[in-house]
C-alpha cells in the first residue's frame, strides 16, 4: 500500500467513525440545518418584498447565497471536530497507531463533506417549499451542487488549520464567526453588487464567495434573463465575467495553501 492509498483506506475508517457521530448526535445536524432554514424563511418573507432584483424573484436570487453561506458554516465543524479530538486525547491514540499520518485530516474533511451534503439536501427541500426552482437542466443543476460541495471542502481545510492551531472547541466556534461572517456577507449573497459603496465593491467582486455564488446562480438559472429592462450593467470584474473558472481557481488556491498548512499544524499540534 503506498502513502496515498493508505491515506484513503485509513481516512475511510476515520470518516466512518465521524459519521457514526452524526447518527448518534443528530442535534449537530439539526443545528446546522435550522440556521439556514431560518435564513431562507427570514429573507424570503421579511426582505422578500423590500429588496428588489429586477427580472428575477428575490427568493430565487437568494438561494445560491444561502447555500454558500450554509456550507461555509458547515465547514467549520472540521475545526471544532479536530479541536475536540485533540482535547480528548483521541488524536494521541491515532498517532500511536501505525496508520497514515494524513488519515485523520482526510477522514475528517471527508465526513464533513458528507455532513454538508445532507445539509444541502435539507435546504433544497426547504427552498423548493418556499418557491425556489432550478431553471436549468439536470446536468447544470448537478454542476451547481458539485461546485458548492467542492467549495465547502476547500473551506474545511481552512477550518482544520484554525482548529489545530487554537485547540479549543469554544475558541474555534468564535473564530469561525470571525472569518465566515465577513466572507459570506461581503459578497453578492444577499444584495446585488451594484448596491455596494464604490470602495467596497472591488472587495466583494474579488471575494471567492462572490464567484462561487455567481457560478451557482448561473448553474441553477436563478438569474435575470439578459436584456431585462431596469437591469444595471453587469459587473465587468474578471471573476464575474468568468465565475466558474474563478471559483475553481479560488478552490485550487485555497487547497494549495491550506492543505499543507493544516498538515503542518497537525504535526505541530500533536507533538506539542
Amino acid at each position: 500500500m503506498n502513502a496515498f492509498t493508505a491515506a484513503l483506506a485509513d481516512g475511510a475508517v476515520v470518516a466512518e467513525r465521524n459519521l457514526i457521530k452524526i447518527k448518534r448526535l443528530p442535534d449537530l445536524l439539526v443545528f446546522t440545518t435550522v440556521q439556514p432554514v431560518m435564513f431562507v424563511l427570514l429573507f424570503a418573507y421579511v426582505f422578500g418584498g423590500a429588496i428588489d432584483v429586477p427580472g428575477v424573484d428575490y427568493r430565487e436570487f437568494l438561494m445560491a447565497g444561502i447555500f454558500v453561506q450554509t456550507v461555509a458554516f458547515g465547514s467549520t465543524i472540521t475545526g471544532t471536530g479536530l479541536a475536540d479530538d485533540l482535547q480528548k486525547g483521541i488524536i494521541d491514540r491515532f498517532r500511536s497507531l501505525p496508520m497514515s499520518r494524513a488519515a485523520v485530516l482526510v477522514g475528517r474533511t471527508t465526513s464533513d463533506l458528507v455532513n454538508n451534503l445532507i445539509v444541502v439536501v435539507v435546504m433544497s427541500a426547504c427552498g423548493l417549499l418556499v418557491g425556489w426552482r432550478i431553471r436549468e437542466d439536470v446536468l447544470s443543476a448537478a454542476a451547481g451542487f458539485a461546485l458548492l460541495l467542492l467549495f465547502s471542502y476547500a473551506l474545511s481545510w481552512i477550518s482544520a488549520t484554525i482548529g489545530l492551531a487554537v485547540r479549543s472547541v469554544e475558541v474555534v466556534n468564535n473564530a469561525s464567526f470571525l472569518w465566515v461572517f465577513p466572507l459570506t456577507f461581503l459578497s453578492n449573497a444577499f444584495v446585488p453588487l451594484e448596491g455596494y459603496a464604490p470602495w467596497l465593491r472591488p472587495v466583494a467582486e474579488w471575494n471567492p464567495v462572490t464567484a462561487v455564488i455567481a457560478a451557482v446562480r448561473d448553474f441553477f438559472g436563478n438569474v435575470p434573463p439578459p436584456g431585462t429592462p431596469g437591469l444595471p450593467p453587469p459587473s465587468d470584474a474578471w471573476p464575474l465575467q468568468h465565475p466558474v473558472i474563478a471559483s475553481l481557481g479560488w478552490i485550487a488556491l485555497i487547497l494549495a495553501v491550506f492543505v499543507p498548512l493544516a498538515i503542518r499544524q497537525y504535526r505541530r499540534a500533536a507533538t506539542r
Partner: peptide, 27 residues
C-alpha cells in the same frame, strides 16, 4: 501498544466500535 495516562476512547462509539476501529487502523 500504548495505553496513556488518560483513557483516549471515543465517547460516541460503543466499546466494540472503539476496538474494531483500532484494529482496522492497525490494518
Amino acid at each position: 501498544g500504548l495505553s496513556g495516562q488518560y483513557a483516549a476512547v471515543d465517547e460516541h462509539l460503543t466499546g466494540n466500535e472503539n476496538l474494531v476501529m483500532v484494529g482496522r487502523l492497525y490494518h
